[in-house]
């Protein structure tokens, strides 16, 4: 009887799904891996392929505003690939200098974020467990307010008759308001401020696991605290530093909102160039080519770095 019910598909849904997956050869380990693979395929690879496809097309006044890559003509499949979009990027020095400028701003911001974030992460990791939780909470707390709102708040601080200028003028340090808003300086402040938690959290996770006995051993062997820091703590936290830097650097390169709100008109980052191509020129193919080139420029060095690290770990 119960056997029959099972055959009639009266099993609970989960068990039924499990059977179906079993039948197509997915079980246990494979199933666990399949979900993230499917996720990456749907939300990373597929959108990337769509962008790659558009980058080989040609702009047109249509909806969507580019020509199709393939069409059927008398039973023949015609595929037109337009690599001109990529060549065009090298025709005009604008794109190269925008890439360089973006990487420069992101790199400088990352270094500043690291210099500010490391001591904070270190102190939080060394604090008593009760205090530690409060301090971590304080790092995460700003996330409860919209990122956009917090960038707007910086406008209030930095502008001509904003808070900072008003205080400085009141105490007589300056006579004329300092021009801080709409400069690269404001962009650095915005990026460092916004991405600081992304630096602190991986560093903290790393530093909190640091075995205190290493430090004691180092001290016992006569090293001063500074020496201990540079020869023991810092090398041991390398993976935290790399993780934090990646989390800050990669999104900072493509940052659009912060330079748009805080930066000056001459702050030329790749996000702005993309905006221009996409919105002002309505040239989705070129915009896509810009995005693909940026991905290649960023991803390849990162993959090489990872490979080098893996090789190094193997040697050890």
């Amino acid at each position: 009887m119960s056997q029959e019910e099972t055959l009639n598909g009266k099993l609970p849904g989960g068990a039924f799904l499990g059977r179906a997956l079993h039948r197509i050869g997915l079980r246990g380990r494979g199933l666990v891996i399949a979900i993230p693979v499917l996720w990456l395929f749907l939300f990373f690879l597929l959108p990337f392929l769509v962008v790659a496809k558009i980058s080989l097309s040609e702009a047109a006044i249509a909806r969507p505003p580019y020509l199709p890559l393939w069409n059927w003509d008398d039973g023949f499949l015609n595929i037109t690939l337009n690599f001109g979009n990529y060549l065009f990027l090298f025709d005009d020095p604008l794109y190269l200098s925008a890439y360089i400028e973006s990487v420069k701003i992101a790199a400088v911001s990352t270094v500043i974020t690291l210099l500010v974030g490391y001591p904070m992460a270190y102190l939080i990791a060394r604090a008593a467990p009760d205090t530690r939780n409060i301090l971590l909470m304080l790092v995460i707390l700003p996330f409860w307010t919209s990122f956009l709102l917090r960038v707007y708040a910086w406008i209030g601080f930095l502008k001509g008759n904003g808070i900072i200028n008003n205080i400085l003028m009141k105490i007589g340090l300056i006579n004329e308001p300092l021009v801080m808003l709409q400069t690269d300086f404001a962009v650095y402040i915005g990026i460092v401020y916004t991405y600081l938690p992304f630096m602190i959290l991986p560093l903290f996770a790393n530093l909190v696991k640091l075995d205190q006995s290493y430090l004691e051993a180092s001290a016992d062997l006569g090293a001063r605290p500074v020496t201990t820091f540079f020869t023991v703590t810092l090398p041991l936290s390398a993976s935290g530093i790399i993780a934090g830097c990646m989390l800050v650097f990669i999104p900072a390169v493509g940052e659009f909102v912060i330079p748009a709100l805080l930066g000056g008109p001459d702050t030329l980052m790749i996000g702005r160039v993309l905006w221009n191509e996409f919105f002002s020129n309505r040239d989705w193919p070129i915009a896509s080519a810009v995005a693909i080139v940026m991905l290649v420029v960023l991803v390849i060095p990162i993959m090489l770095l990872r490979k080098a690290q893996a090789a190094e770990a193997e040697v050890q």
């Binding site: 702009a59 006044i61 200098s97 001459d266 221009n276 002002s280 020129n281 309505r282 040239d283």
Partner: peptide
Amino acid sequence: TPRYDRSLTRAWTTIKTGQ
């Protein structure tokens, strides 16, 4: 025309950034 829009945007970038 799309061609002129591209020149216009390019000129605009030159004006804004000096590049």
